[in-house]
Write a protein that binds this DNA or RNA. Structure first.
Lengths: 135, 135
DNA sequence: AGTCGTGATGAGAACGGTTGTCAACTCGAC
DNA sequence: GTCGAGTTGACAACCGTTCTCATCACGACT
């Protein structure tokens, strides 16, 4: 009954290594399905459900950033910073820049409080077209 | 070839009036399905597809605000201001306050430009729990 | 190296929101 | 009243994501 004996160990499997590897290959946000396809063509086939599960787990533990694309699907990218931050994402290729809005956090909290709302959470993402994709 | 003869008139139908009426009843953001259900119990039955189509049309013309809920579904609310603005939404009841982040717009544009991104668009929504729902 | 328990996997079904299909309908201009 | 084009509704199709469950394989412990 002591915590020194983790009851739920996270096992390292070929599949998890593959997903992590594929994510490490790029700076761009990509969907679970894109990742699944990339792994398949790479010869590192992993079940789609597993890709979803793995990404979810990694997102929970803060190993990947998740954000909802403009069409509603979830996009993932390996996380470079563990602190809270936002993104400037290219809507064409998915390339992203991590940014922080120094004032945003404070602004969100104060606006929330001013209207009597608690547990304020905020969504702040910037979409644009990067130089390469602009042509 | 002159604009004085609109080729595609928007017709006022019982269904559109019903959807508009249901939206006018509340200040809260609600989903297409909630609206559909509300209309049904009200005796003003409208097909689900029609509710979706009508909301989409109204959103395009700026008559309703749309935002994507935390679970990914689209939420609609009658629009009070046509100018660009953001929302502070109660994640429990959907009640919302229209807000504007004076600095947000400028900040988004400058960050985008600084990284060579064009056509910057931004998503800024605040979620919280309102007084009534806090208990 | 062999055992074993439990977490992990994958194929496919299920789900939930949304959009497409198409024949029947109805608004509204004439 | 007529007529045509926009509109509607029941239902199928879509699509991303999650669930199911039998089978597999880490890895801790011999």
């Amino acid at each position: 009954m002591n915590d020194t004996t983790p009851r739920t160990a996270v096992r390292m499997t070929r599949q998890r290594a593959a997903v992590a590897g594929a994510l490490g290959d790029t700076d761009e946000f990509c969907s679970a399905q894109q990742l699944h396809e990339r792994l398949r063509t790479r010869g590192d086939a992993v079940g789609l459900a597993t890709v979803y599960r793995t990404l979810q787990t990694m997102a929970d533990s803060g190993d990947v950033d998740v954000l909802r694309g403009e069409d509603g699907e979830n996009l993932y990218r390996r996380c470079e910073r563990s602190e809270h931050h936002h993104h400037l994402v290219c809507r064409v290729c998915g390339r992203a820049v991590e940014i922080d809005g120094p004032s945003v956090e404070a602004w969100a909290a104060s606006v929330g409080a001013a209207h009597g709302f608690a547990d304020i959470d905020h969504t702040v993402e910037l979409w644009g077209t990067c130089v390469q994709c602009r042509r």
